[in-house]
Design a protein around this nucleic acid. Structure first.
Lengths: 152, 152
DNA sequence: CTTGACCCTAGAGTATACTCTAAGGTCTAA
DNA sequence: TTAGACCTTAGAGTATACTCTAGGGTCAAG
């Protein structure tokens, strides 16, 4: 199959597939006479493997490791895969904890405000951000919990 | 005070303060003869305001709105501030929900694996990523929940 | 009068993962 | 034969928020 079909079947875009190829994650098993990428069922499996890994929150770098384990399983041990998964779990748990603290602080901020068409002269949100009272965010490992996610 | 002192007192770096100035968030109230930025107590309050807002998860764009409300409160209403806070709450809650789903899937993935020095030939992590069974991630509003955060 | 700590600017670099563009070639069906 | 859908490449652009560099000026202490 050509890249368009692989894209459809894998759920990744053709652009993304070419990008992954550049990153060394997946290669077309052949090229047609006209230099089109030709993919096999195995390539489809690989594409899906990558997609699933990404959905689980693994970075491309981590996916690369999984792929190399997958490519030669006898040469690797379970620990290698589990270590990555465990680190990711810790990471995700930390993010959740941080976000939960932010959420509590946000609720405090928001709940105190009437939210109406009243002048903001005494808006409790602005006031709270000004004096910082009652908004304590226990310091987590990540200073700017959300900073890294605001590209959504 | 000069930028170094403001940095110390506000907890923002001098670099960041200059960056925020470029973004129009904060201005030095004056310049010295040698063209050094000179900040007032009010500027310190503004710097802290920005820092607190960032810690609450607001983007620079959102902080800008807060600052403009703060700069002329009578010209604004509470709703403007509360709307931003509410949107952020929804946003954060969504992120938490998504991460929680990822966490559950990650646990499933990891718990099934022995994690030992056994050959990865039958590693359940790799297998699960291959066939995608039992890893269902209900589709949330954000396809790649973690994709945006992996710059941590 | 020199050292070291500070300050200035404009602009480039960092992180991650795409996403798109330009300029062109290929293929299929009407 | 021509439109339209597909494919190719290299490389630039996008998002956000910094973070750093180069090259230079300022200032107080010893």
């Amino acid at each position: 199959m050509k890249i368009g079909e692989l894209a459809k079947l894998s759920g990744l875009s053709a652009h993304t597939l070419r990008f992954y190829e550049k990153q060394g994650l997946i290669q077309a098993s052949a090229r047609s006479e006209s230099n089109y990428r030709v993919y096999s069922q195995g390539d489809l499996a690989t594409a899906k493997f990558i997609k699933r890994s990404r959905e689980m929150g693994f970075s491309l770098e981590e996916v690369e490791v999984f792929l190399s384990i997958r490519a030669d399983k006898p040469a690797h041990v379970c620990r290698e895969a589990k270590d990555i998964a465990q680190l990711k779990i810790t990471d995700v748990q930390q993010k959740i904890d941080d976000l939960q603290q932010v959420l509590v602080a946000l609720h405090k901020l928001s709940d105190a405000c009437c939210g109406g068409n009243e002048s903001a002269e005494f808006c409790s949100i602005i006031e709270a951000l000004e004096d910082g009272e009652g908004l304590s965010l226990a310091h987590s490992t990540q200073t700017h919990v959300l900073a890294k996610e605001q590209q959504a």
